[in-house]
């Protein structure tokens, strides 16, 4: 078991290293001069300033030297300065915006997973039933829908108010601006703003979890020990929850955590639609401003989060499955 754990951690570290290296080459080797991009459209765009900026960014060094500097900086978590938030480091900018994303993605992922898994369990258990067919159809439909489009429609319906739909939620943002609320009132306000993006993000991804669990459960139900459980006189309810589900949960869990990468993608567009001031919206703003250090930092962060999530999934699986624990 220990060998397994060490192996998985090593793999994760290796992948992380790959991402860091990839990040470096991406921005240094891409077409275009970063200094020119930075100064583009500014009055200071002249050969001297360009030279100065290049020196500041370390672009006048030979490539290998740049790489070493880059590595050193990254390990020290120095991700450089943001372009568009003049003079402030990438770290600061990210730190300011990370909490709203954690709040939104955290809560919606938990809700999505729980609801999705339960739908998957009942769908798989009553395979072919109206519920199963209905939930599969619903999942398919939601899967085919761009999640941001769904977000836009929800925003239009419940915040903008159109046709029969009431405008009962704010049109975006994290809190009512300039309201100066504190304590409980503040949290209620935040919650009010959270409802719509939370709803959209939850619905958008619960189908994935449902299908993963459904297929896993159907697989398990074909196994002999389910017949044994029934033969022993176990109630159907317990056959499902005490025998089938624990076995179906193991592979489901891994696949579920692996789909976290997609949730991040959804977070980017949904935050943008709802002006939710998290890392997702920050990414879109960084695209517009061509703020490469920031984009680089965000990419590193997103990739790192997914890599770590995968590692956690592997470790959790190893802990929960007695077969892996033993050998």
């Amino acid at each position: 078991m220990r060998g397994y754990l060490i192996g998985k951690v090593a793999q994760a570290l290796l992948t992380l290293v790959f991402v860091v290296v990839f990040n470096f080459f991406l921005f240094r080797v891409m077409p275009g001069d970063p200094a020119a991009l930075l100064l583009r459209g500014s009055a200071a765009f002249n050969p001297d300033t360009l030279e100065q900026v290049r020196e500041d960014l370390g672009l006048d060094e030979p490539l290998p030297a740049q790489f070493v500097t880059y590595l050193g900086n990254t390990v020290a978590l120095d991700l450089g300065d943001s372009f568009f938030a003049r003079g402030r480091s990438v770290n600061t900018v990210i730190a300011e915006r990370i909490w709203p994303t954690l709040l939104l993605v955290g809560t919606s992922t938990i809700a999505s997973a729980i609801i999705g898994l339960i739908i998957g369990i009942y769908g798989g258990w009553k395979r072919g039933s109206a519920f199963d067919v209905g939930s599969l159809g619903f999942t398919l439909f939601v899967y085919s829908m761009p999640e941001f489009w769904f977000g836009i429609l929800v925003l239009m319906a419940f915040a903008g108010g159109v046709g029969p739909f009431p405008a009962i939620f704010p049109t975006g943002g994290y809190e009512t601006p300039a309201a100066g609320l504190t304590g409980l009132a503040h949290w209620v306000d935040v919650l009010n703003h959270l409802v719509l993006p939370f709803f959209v993000l939850t619905v958008a991804y619960l189908g994935e979890y449902a299908i993963i669990m459904r297929n896993s459960l159907i697989d398990i139900m074909g196994d002999d020990f389910i017949t044994t459980a029934r033969a022993k006189g176990v109630r159907e309810k317990h056959v499902l929850w005490r025998h089938a589900v624990p076995n179906a949960l193991l592979p489901t869990m891994t696949l579920t955590i692996l789909s976290l990468g997609f949730v991040f993608g959804g977070a980017i567009t949904i935050e943008y639609v709802f002006s939710w001031p998290g890392l997702g919206w920050l990414t879109v703003q960084a695209i517009d401003a061509k703020d490469f250090p920031l984009l680089q930092g965000l990419f590193l962060l997103f990739s790192g989060a997914v890599i770590i999530a995968n590692l956690i999934a592997d470790l959790l699986y190893a802990y929960l499955d007695p077969r892996v624990r033993a050998g």
């Binding site: 980017i268 997103f302 995968n310």
Partner: peptide
């Protein structure tokens, strides 16, 4: 492993 949208955006 790399999340698609961040990579594509970059």
């Amino acid at each position: 492993v790399i999340p698609f949208l961040p990579l594509a955006i970059v």
